[in-house]
Design a protein around this nucleic acid. Structure first.
Lengths: 342, 342
DNA sequence: ATCGTCACCGCAATCGTCTGCATTAATTTT
DNA sequence: AAAATTAATGCAGACGATTGCGGTGACGAT
């Protein structure tokens, strides 16, 4: 059957005192004799008493639980973020309820609903690709409910966001390709409704302009799913149909970069001699493939940790809304490997 | 401030009825007039009422939450398992509380403690590498608390376990290497206290015996951490110091396999011509590296899903302890790629 | 003998929901 | 018209813990 947990009542009965006394004794309240405290604590220890967190939550309207809404768990970057979240939450005594949306808006909505019903103290959110309006969050924000957005963030003013510097990561990657002598750099972009995709595309474009080149909008091709298969097909198509062929690819993510690399190899092009490739996220496999893949590394763990710290500070009122600059941006780092150096 | 949720009291006050009536009306209990039901439901809808799951948990001693204790999140296999868990739990209306132990026993213990304190209905567990005694679980099991172990499971009779067929995966992998003509196959094993490591080593050994070879215990080398760096060092050492050099490596996991591959390449050996390599887990990168890595794929998603189904069935008393055969074993599949075919 | 002080402790309400057992009013039966 | 039945609803206690407030007894002071 259900686990029969020891309650404060059991201790009270055993000791012939009231539950109030037990409660206060356990918490070292004044007004309880040392003798009583000792007896209560001893018995509690002996009976292996553990406070019922549910009852506490009800009483305090606090659950010491935070929710995490994430597009998908099976994703190197997101899993490192989760790891960071979990680490900080655990250290500060909070539980983590996790749901993945599988990039579906309906699941995002229903997840937030059941989480609220479970009285979570706050929530960390990274949007699904489908999410274009933020209504289901904005009314929560308006009520002052603690929300911190990370990575995939909304473009509204009063939201607290933690992101990585996608713009400068993309800028540096593109600049690096230019410095290596690549001239016709294509960009395999992500879904255009995501701010991160926009930022990366903007970094790419600005880097070109900054170095005196004129960006060709046709050289930005959207890879919506972000899988290697998709990118492979798209790249193959580009290599076939474009009149001016790209001599480098800057991909929105590493999977797409690998897809591009495979397509190039299949087309008889050598990487990095004929074509340079740079990815984004620095998945584990980057250093394991041949040629090893240059990539922009995102501090996933730190991002998760930082977002959680801010959220918990908000929850515990250590900071007020607006005290932090609303958006925290963590630095990215371009890791240069073989795929982009000739 | 904290989110001011609408309660049934608010609805009751507004409608001049008792909370009991509201509660029953919302649940379509008999004995409530259709008129009242309609009014209550309408107002509940209008006020955006959501039942307080915490209060329900307290009342029912059920939280509709399951706990997941996992060594680490940033791990391809485990993240797919989590995905499977989350999927089934969500579909059946359960929340998932996640904690990672980072392979530490103390965190395993404290995680289970706070989870119990949060009145979880059951728990899914994969052990940390440090865990050698199961006391912190066995007394829970004795009390009939629903626990399902997966992947890294204890070796006790009354525990329900869901695993993949490590033995036959290892057997097939080794057999495949033998069939390709490799004769001096070394095994980079995992921590010997984990049953999965033992099973894989056993499959390896049995395959050798089955094909008429005498296993050399010295050819089983433990890679405790399971990282590519560690495996690279160990493999390099093997290649240097062993009098009979291995001509193939069957690794306990893919990271180790990659490490071995790198070490072989560094030693001037060609893969697969001089040395064959097979990994375990079929991480995403297997098909992306050069040469592509043969590996035993584990059905992570299915494993998570199956374990969760069993757990929820247990919780909901759809099945009794012992009704399932205590251990469910899912099939593995050897995926043959270039690293082991000459 | 009466009062005040102090240490120690218990009562009861509370958080939001559910539910067994009344209670009330309306309706039907005799 | 009185009694019995039925339908609709309310009361109150429970789940486990916390906490403001009031109560009890011992003790010393007056």
């Amino acid at each position: 059957m259900r686990l029969e947990q020891i309650t404060i009542k059991d201790i009270a009965r055993e000791l012939n005192v009231s539950t109030s006394t037990v409660s206060r004794a356990l918490k070292d309240y004044p007004g309880i004799s040392d003798e009583t405290k000792r007896k209560v604590k001893e018995l509690a220890e002996k009976m292996d008493y553990r406070p019922n967190a549910i009852a506490l939550s009800l009483r305090k309207s606090r659950s010491f639980t935070i929710g995490v809404i994430i597009p998908e768990v099976v994703h190197f970057f997101f899993s490192t973020v989760i790891s960071g979240i979990e680490e900080v939450a655990f250290a500060r005594g909070y539980n983590v309820i996790l749901t993945q949306t599988n990039e579906k808006l309906v699941r995002e909505k229903s997840s937030i609903a059941t989480m609220l019903s479970n009285q979570i103290d706050g929530v960390l959110v990274s949007f699904s690709k489908e999410t274009t309006d933020f209504e289901h969050f904005s009314n929560l924000l308006a009520k002052g409910f603690p929300i911190v957005f990370f990575d995939r963030v909304p473009d509204i003013d009063n939201a607290i966001t933690v992101t990585v510097d996608d713009y400068s990561g993309a800028f540096e990657a593109t600049k690096h390709l230019l410095q290596q002598g690549y001239r016709r750099i294509a960009h395999l972009s992500g879904p255009s409704n995501l701010k991160i995709s926009q930022e990366r595309a903007r970094g790419y474009t600005d880097a070109l302009i900054h170095h005196g080149f004129t960006p060709d909008p046709g050289f930005i091709v959207e890879c919506n799913k972000g899988t290697d298969d998709e990118a492979q097909k798209i790249t193959a198509e580009i290599l076939e149909t474009f009149s001016t062929k790209p001599d480098a690819f800057f991909a929105n993510n590493d999977m797409a970069a690998v897809g591009a690399m495979l397509a190039c190899k299949a087309a008889g092009l050598r990487v990095p001699e004929d074509v340079g490739i740079v990815g984004f996220s620095n998945w584990q496999f980057c250093s394991m493939i041949d040629p090893s893949l240059s990539s922009v590394s995102q501090p996933g763990f730190n991002l998760g940790a930082k977002a959680t710290e801010i959220l918990l500070d908000l929850i515990e009122k250590k900071i007020q809304l607006g005290e932090y600059s609303n958006s925290v941006v963590l630095e990215t780092e371009l890791l240069i490997r073989k795929s982009s150096v000739r």
